[in-house]
Amino acid sequence: MKKVIIGNTDLEVAPINLGGNVFGWTLNEKESFKILDAFVAEGFNFIDTADMYSYWVDGKGGGQSETILGKWMKERGNRDKIIMATKVGGETGLHPVDTSKKHILEGVDKSLQRLQTDYIDLYYTHFDDEKTPVEETLEAYDEIIRAGKVRYIAASNLSPERLKASFEASEKNNLPRYQALQPHYNLVERTNYEMKYAPLAEKYNLTVFPYWALAAGFLTGKYRSEDDLNKSVRGGGAKKYLNEKGMAVIAALDEIAEKHRTSQATVSLAWLLAQPHIGAPIASATNEKQLQTLFDAPKLQLDTEDMQMLNNASK
């Protein structure tokens, strides 16, 4: 399987990023281990989590996902084979969005403890408080990189203006620079990324890992009416796509999936993989059937007709 090099780093990842938000939420520890074992057995190595996952289970600050991942890596003895990405700065039951130096220095140690490791491969600014100077955030990252706690940094949910300011501060002050971007991007959420962030990914050589790559499950094709929304705990997130554009995208996915004898989810991920700067779409799975749709995506080569159909439907 062809690996992707992240930005200007030595991190090589397979082209699907397994979303860790389900670990400790919709999957318990035993179920999570089963999914993780199957994922790496297929040759994939890139896992995405955050310090705040899955805080909504108990409202007390999160950490369940990191804890499960830490136990799994410890039991399997495979830390050196995994590229682990986690995040800091998100709101939890205990604190608001915070990208201050104090919070980052505290947060990284807590994540390392839960993950049972002494380093994080890719550390994201999860959300931006827009009050902390970007220099302060980057200085915190400089400190933890120098300490060997983090290898590289990345950004998610920063405004284009703050992202650009971060790069300017990195260059001016010789501070670490973001190597990757994690935006909201998929077939039914194109405009914001393509208009505001894609030019920055090009300018700063950012490798892009889109979250909600399957639009809260809508792009799997299982939500076609409001009656379908109770099919899963995440169904409510797909409601906003039950409109003319959303149905046009589903119709295109249906046709292309049938043509290639694959699933709508696989086609959706393959479309993302065909876009400039996309390294590995982030998608979660709660069973082996869902995992297979992720495994199939890098193998699917969409032709010009497929791409045109999807692009037209999703405009």
Rank of each mutant, 00 (worst) to 15 (best):
L163S: 04
K164P: 00
A165D: 12
A165P: 00
E168N: 09
S170F: 05
K172H: 09
K172F: 04
N173C: 06
N174W: 00
L175R: 10
L175A: 11
P176F: 10
R177K: 14
R177L: 07
Y178D: 04
Q179A: 09
A180G: 08
Q182R: 09
Q182I: 13
Q182D: 04
H184N: 14
H184Y: 13
Y185I: 09
Y185G: 07
Y185R: 10
N186W: 06
L187N: 03
L187S: 06
E189P: 00
R190I: 11
N192G: 02
Y193P: 00
Y193N: 05
E194D: 11
K196S: 14
K196N: 15
K196I: 00
Y197C: 09
A198V: 01
A198T: 02
P199T: 14
L200Y: 01
A201R: 08
A201C: 08
L206N: 04
V208I: 09
F209W: 02
A213I: 07
A215K: 01
G217R: 01
T220N: 03
T220F: 01
K222Q: 10
S225Y: 05
E226H: 10
D227S: 13
L229H: 05
L229E: 04
N230T: 14
N230E: 10
K231P: 01
G235Q: 05
G235S: 07
A238I: 13
K239D: 07
Y241P: 03
L242P: 03
L242D: 09
E244C: 04
A248P: 01
I250V: 15
I250C: 00
A251N: 15
A252C: 07
A252D: 05
L253V: 12
D254L: 04
E258S: 13
K259D: 14
R261M: 13
T262A: 09
T262P: 01
A265M: 06
A265W: 04
A265S: 07
Q275S: 09
P276R: 13
P276W: 06
P276A: 13
